[in-house]
């Protein structure tokens, strides 16, 4: 090794730079959707954005922090009910309620974390589910929110968002788009920061992480809190689109957790790209098979089994191993550059 050889550390790759440009172009196109897409397309896109948000957040919890929660529907439902309550009882603008329910969810997640962090592995998973059931049963008791049968958002509140139906649809679509941009930005910047390095280390080996100075409990605690807050905000938007809420819909383990786990696991758990791929696959499958009733669920199950057997690290894990592609450069690479080249070219 000569002295002319030096090293430096870079984070982006050619494929990630292309991905960043493509993402920017895609964002511009998506923001303009109200001018080119129909009402149904916008609803579908909104739903994709919100499901993708849930998947990215669950992936942060389970894929990075090792918190395999099957009770995130607690926060989805809390967010939905929170929005309805704030709008109906306090007369708040529904969009203003979205960040507020996020803050409320983070606060309520604090005592929950202290309680369920005493459990680990499968016990933790069951614990989160029990918490979600407690939420469902509690909200079913609130008669002013319709009790067990639920309630609709009063038409006056819906109309207060915007005069025309087209504008309301657009606002609701933009809110969902803003949500996924926020969620991706938060998770991506987190993973690129020094906290992300610690979090990834915990994902790979908790014992080593501890003995290298990482406070595993507090790291997980913050992940749980942020995931709770953002999940609740996503939940608020989901039910703002539906305009109707009931305990069974709001705290549904299939809709808000099972499908989300499917998305993350087949896409590639513990990667930024996995939830993106998984969401696309999920919505494609749903588009083709959803009308088939129970057969649809059997197809989902079969796809999950095949992917897990053939590509245990998910579709993205397979693509990454095979082609070395990276869309979100959270990894760091050491590159060698020969400073003698500079000397040849005096300037």
């Amino acid at each position: 090794m000569t002295e002319a050889t030096t090293y430096r550390v870079i984070q982006s790759t050619p494929s990630s730079q292309m991905a960043a440009l493509a993402a920017l172009a895609l964002l511009v196109i998506l923001v303009a959707a109200p001018w080119w897409a129909g009402r149904g397309d916008m609803r579908l896109l909104s739903e994709i954005f919100l499901y993708l948000s849930l998947a990215v957040l669950w992936n942060l919890l389970a894929g990075y922090a090792g918190l395999v929660s099957v009770g995130q529907q607690a926060f989805v439902g809390f967010g939905g009910y929170g929005l309805f309550a704030l709008a109906m009882f306090l007369g708040l603008h529904p969009l203003l309620a979205v960040p507020l329910v996020g803050v409320a969810a983070a606060l309520i997640a604090i005592p929950i974390a202290f309680l369920i962090f005493r459990l680990s592995g499968a016990y933790f998973a069951i614990g989160t589910w029990v918490i979600a059931e407690v939420f469902r049963l509690s909200f079913a008791q609130v008669s002013s929110l319709g009790g067990g049968s639920g309630t609709s958002l009063p038409i006056a509140i819906v109309k207060s968002m915007a005069g025309s139906r087209a504008l309301r649809d657009s606002i609701s679509y933009w809110a969902a788009l803003a949500m996924i941009v926020l969620v991706l930005a938060v998770v991506y910047l987190w993973l690129r920061s020094r906290h992300g390095i610690s979090l990834t280390a915990i994902r790979d080996n908790e014992l080593a992480a501890r003995s290298l100075g990482i406070d595993v409990w507090w790291t997980k605690f913050w992940v749980y809190l942020v995931a709770a807050a953002l999940t609740a905000s996503v939940g608020a938007l989901l039910f703002l689109q539906k305009l109707r809420i009931s305990p069974d819909a709001a705290f549904n383990v299939n809709d808000w957790t099972a499908y989300v786990i499917f998305i993350v696991v087949i896409g590639g758990i513990g990667t930024m790209e996995g939830p993106l791929i998984g969401t696309l696959v999920f919505f494609l499958l749903r588009g083709f098979f959803a009308d088939l009733g129970t057969v649809y669920l059997m197809v989902l199950g079969a796809v999950a089994i095949v992917v897990i057997l053939k590509a245990p690290r998910g579709i993205w894990g397979y693509i990454h191993d095979r082609y070395g592609l990276t869309l979100f450069p959270v990894s760091r690479r050491v590159v060698k550059f020969d400073s003698s080249h500079k000397n040849e070219n005096p300037s």
Binding site: V9, S193, R194, I197, S198, T200, A201, R203, D204, N205, L207, A208, A209, L212, G213, I214, G270, S331, R332, R333, V334
Partner: peptide
């Protein structure tokens, strides 16, 4: 006890940021 999915460099980076408390740049 390596961090198996992280690179060799990133493994050392965990120690330099978490244990030694260095900024990413210094690390």
């Amino acid at each position: 006890q390596p961090f198996t999915a992280m690179t060799v460099f990133e493994n050392t980076l965990v120690a330099a940021t978490a244990a030694a408390g260095l900024s990413i740049r210094d690390a």
